[in-house]
Design a protein around this nucleic acid. Structure first.
Lengths: 181, 181
DNA sequence: AATTATCTACCTATCGATAGGCAGATTTGA
DNA sequence: TCAAATCTGCCTATCGATAGGTAGATAATT
């Protein structure tokens, strides 16, 4: 039921906080209070805020890649990533962690910025993979950008139906479109 | 040549800072130092950080709407907004202010969140306007979401060519696509 | 006994914000 | 016309709160 590992519980709490206010929007004290320890004890598990945020981005990346898996067609890749972001919007009701970090890029410690960059490059690679056999109508960057933007905009105007309309628009174009180049 | 009005200079400096680190990523002291006054003097022009950030979002919205103007066709609307975001990516080399604020939504003072929401609803309305006569292939939300996401992703992976590829993908789909419903 | 995990207690730096003052320009009123 | 009053735009100094981070004692586990 409860998370056994304190390190995991810290990551969970920090992720929630970071997905609300971004890197500068959460603190060791808040996270510590969330998990029921003192802020000094958080430093035992993660020596610096940079280390904590980097671990956050890396775990988030791995989890996202697991959801995407190894799709066999471009359309299947599209649907997997759509579902990943739809879950973020409708179930977790939170921004994408690395989307938020990416927006804050210039205000991030370099190590966190690098981990954030990896999230995007690795997801793009995973989305692009099935296109090796068979052309895809859109670049992998286009899929990811659109979903990241749809999540951001839908949340900003407090209307999750925006997300679904954007996905519908893009998917229709994706199916109708023939080879791009 | 130089900005006469201190209020304007404060807004300019704060906008640069906010577009780097977000709402929690800039401070009165930094902004004050940028314009050559003391942080206490910034409070003379903007009583609270909420007031400053709200003014920032409102000014950003007005300026964006001026760039978009009143396009006469859906495709013209698309191109105007594309150019707005391309300028942000390639010339200013900064994230969209309200895109960043939107990502941080849950960590924002309510007044700032509302001003951010207005940015998106008003831009969507401006993009949608020419569609009253003549169908548009995509919803206005799709245009805005995709560009916001493309800006975010391109910056996150330090590759501005991503932005252009996404815009090219979307524009091709936009031209090829026939009436959606 | 040694390792692991958490504690108390504290540090320095910075945060947003307030109080009160002061020089200079502007307005007001006799 | 000239002096009193007010306003503008900044200043210094300081507030309480909070930030990330550290040292060393203590408790728990093996």
């Amino acid at each position: 039921m409860a998370d056994d590992d304190m390190r995991t519980r810290i990551l969970d709490a920090a992720e929630q906080r970071a997905r609300e206010g971004g890197y500068h929007g959460f603190s060791f004290r808040e996270v510590a209070a969330d998990v029921g320890i003192k802020s000094a004890s958080v430093h035992y598990h993660f020596p610096t805020k940079t280390a904590l945020a980097t671990a956050l981005a890396e775990r988030y990346t791995e989890r996202s890649l697991e959801v995407i898996g190894t799709p066999e067609t471009p359309l299947q890749a599209f649907d997997r990533v759509s579902e990943l972001f739809r879950h973020s919007a409708a179930v977790e009701r939170k921004m994408c962690l690395c989307g938020l970090f990416g927006a804050e890029r210039d205000g991030l410690p370099p190590e966190v910025a690098k981990a954030t960059q990896s999230y995007f490059t690795r997801l793009i690679a995973a989305i692009q993979a099935p296109s090796v056999r068979g052309e895809a109508p859109f670049h992998a960057e286009t899929i990811l950008s659109t979903l990241e933007g749809a999540l951001l905009v839908a949340r900003a105007i407090h209307d999750l139906s925006v997300f679904d309309r954007v996905v519908t628009d893009l998917r229709r174009a994706y199916e109708n479109q023939k080879r791009p180049t």
